[in-house]
Design a protein around this nucleic acid. Structure first.
Lengths: 143, 143
DNA sequence: CCGAATCCCTAGTAAAATAGTAGGGATTCG
DNA sequence: CGAATCCCTACTATTTTACTAGGGATTCGG
């Protein structure tokens, strides 16, 4: 019931690109350095995100990766599913095969609950909240 | 983001015991047969659930496993955590180490959303819903 | 057209987790 | 005592995870 580090890396990478703003591409090396991700591993992750249609890229001297759509149109769920695959918490029986088990209905509820968070959180949201916290000076002491 | 089959087996086993009602113990072999679980594997799972305090057991000719508390006081979350470990979706930074990341807060939300389902669903609930569906004749056609 | 910088692609791999199996020992009870 | 059951330790095959290696294909300034 946890996310792979590959998934975490993917989220951090997309966050980095979202934070950066649109126009120019960001180099893999730069993302790897800022987010502390092994570079070669990151290469594979970014390729996977590109082929899912979330990123674009350009080669050559001023190359790099960039978001393929604005950050308010990419959700955490999109990225997680692209990297870690769809997450049904448990094997689903075929829909027309009546099952004598109380669990499928519960897994549905789990899935919906999860979806309410990850499919409604966009990277624009993440950036905005992160900026808010920055200006408030990160108040992490108590009273 | 999925549950291990070990976890599923554990849920099915506890469901079987809950369904059965309290007094006499149920044999491993019986549970294994009714829920289609490899017997030797199930032995390990039940031992783990016992040492977590959820089940009791008795050896000998009329031995078997039984619930250590009534089914309305055991939740799906209890069992899942006992078998698969605590599920933080992602590594948590230490609480007092201010992190410059927007994700921990989101993982908190994920965890709470999940908890709302699995920590509020007891095995008494599962049995009851399952019985309800039984009497209604499993209406799984549309209109 | 050269060559430097960058992304792109295939393959390999060590370590850990998963999903079991095997074999016998300890209890209980009639 | 002896049959039925749970109990305990160890082993193992397969898959997944988290990488690393090495070079090929593009782009672009000069």
């Amino acid at each position: 019931m946890d996310v792979s580090v590959k998934g975490e890396y993917a989220l951090r990478a997309v966050f980095e690109l979202s934070r950066h703003g649109r126009p120019e591409p960001v180099k893999i090396a730069k993302i790897a350095e800022r987010q502390k991700i092994p570079q070669k591993f990151l290469e594979m992750i970014l390729a996977q995100l590109k082929q899912g249609g979330y990123l674009g890229s350009r080669r050559g001297v001023d190359g790099g990766y960039f978001l393929a759509r604005p950050p308010d149109q990419i959700t955490v769920g999109d990225i997680l599913r692209q990297i870690d695959g769809p997450f049904q918490p448990a094997k689903r029986p075929f829909a027309d095969e009546p099952t004598d088990s109380p669990f499928p209905e519960m897994w549905d509820r789990v899935e919906r609950a999860l979806s309410c968070v990850i499919d409604r959180t966009t990277f624009a949201d993440l950036v905005e909240r992160w900026r808010q916290r920055r200006v408030k000076g990160i108040p992490n002491w108590q009273i």
